[in-house]
């Protein structure tokens, strides 16, 4: 018998949990809505293609967009191949008792939980001080400070490291969905292991590799902490032309404009619009990753 009291409590429990769920939807709607509402009127073609002007109180965000694109492209070039190959190693070459594989798995799990700011510290300590300093000493005897400074190269490499686990994990997931039957078919035909990987495994996990890349780019485009002191610049009169140049970046631009601008209130429109651009960018990336992943999962269920 379901008594009236039980039914009442039940309604309460379900109601409260539904409210919590609703709250999440509300939060997402509120954040998105606020930013769209605040940035829509400022957003224009000119805003996207012009450089900031009048002491960053007017103009557009073109250099920040370019800087962000440079950053994620260089980060992907450095990180995606290494992550992909590492995932191939883990899935295809490493035995269950491989020390290297276990080390990598442990490190990847650890890395995924390390705060982004710690990556920034690493970039500073390792890339700038250690590697950059080393290059400078080798080239000029340390007389000239060229590589031992924040720049787009070190920022990209730092970001590549941050996104390495993302790549490894999603490529691994994709490789695992390649049916064992296909590997067996290839090997039984007298294909070698590498031939099997190159002709069967990799072509069949391309979507997953792409997903990994996109997720990494999305993560990289959204993180600011690692580049705070490894290469992002407050303002640059020109676009980066060398690896040793600093660069402007969307997320960093939002941070700077909203906390350290000379006239925070006057530039609200710019801040909102920049945030909107970043948000649209990450939305686009995440949705394409989700779409690709759902295709992989569908394949996995079919086989």
């Amino acid at each position: 018998m379901v008594t009236k009291k039980r039914r009442l409590i039940g309604a309460g429990v379900i109601g409260i949990s539904a409210i919590a769920a609703l709250a999440i939807v509300g939060i997402v709607a509120a954040v998105t809505g606020t930013i769209v509402a605040g940035g829509w009127s400022t957003l224009s073609w000119e805003f996207l293609t012009a450089a900031p002007s009048e002491g960053m109180t007017a103009g557009g965000i073109f250099p920040a967009i370019v800087g962000t694109v440079f950053l994620v492209v260089m980060m992907s070039i450095a990180g995606v191949p290494i992550g992909t190959v590492t995932a191939i190693y883990l899935c295809e070459y490493a035995g269950t008792r491989s020390v290297l594989a276990r080390g990598i798995r442990f490190a990847v799990n650890t890395l995924a939980g390390v705060p982004a700011i710690v990556f920034g510290l690493f970039g500073l300590g390792f890339f700038i001080q250690f590697v950059g300093g080393g290059i400078d000493r080798a080239l000029t005897g340390g007389a000239e400070l060229r590589w031992a400074q924040p720049n787009i190269l070190w920022a990209s490499l730092t970001m590549a490291l941050l996104t390495l686990p993302v790549v490894i994990i999603s490529v691994e997931e994709a490789i695992k969905t390649v049916p064992q039957d296909l590997r067996a078919a290839s090997l039984a035909l007298g294909a070698t292991k590498w031939q099997t990987i190159r002709r069967v495994v990799i072509p069949n996990s391309l979507t997953g590799i792409m997903t990994g890349g996109i997720l990494a780019v999305s993560r990289g485009a959204g993180e600011v902490a690692p580049i705070l002191f490894t290469g992002a610049a407050y303002f640059l009169p020109h676009l980066p032309t060398a690896l040793s140049d600093q660069f402007m970046e969307l997320g960093y631009h939002i941070y700077i404009m909203s906390t350290q601008s000379t006239d925070v209130d006057a530039t609200r429109g710019i801040q909102y619009a920049t945030t909107l651009v970043l948000l649209l960018l990450t939305f686009l990336l995440n949705f394409s990753a989700i779409y690709l992943r759902s295709r992989i999962r569908a394949r996995q269920q079919r086989s």
Binding site: P179, D181, L182, A184, A185, S186, A188, L189, V200, N204
Partner: peptide
């Protein structure tokens, strides 16, 4: 050569 239980053509 080997033929498997489940046909396994490459995609």
């Amino acid at each position: 050569g080997m033929i498997f239980q489940r046909s396994n053509p490459f995609p």
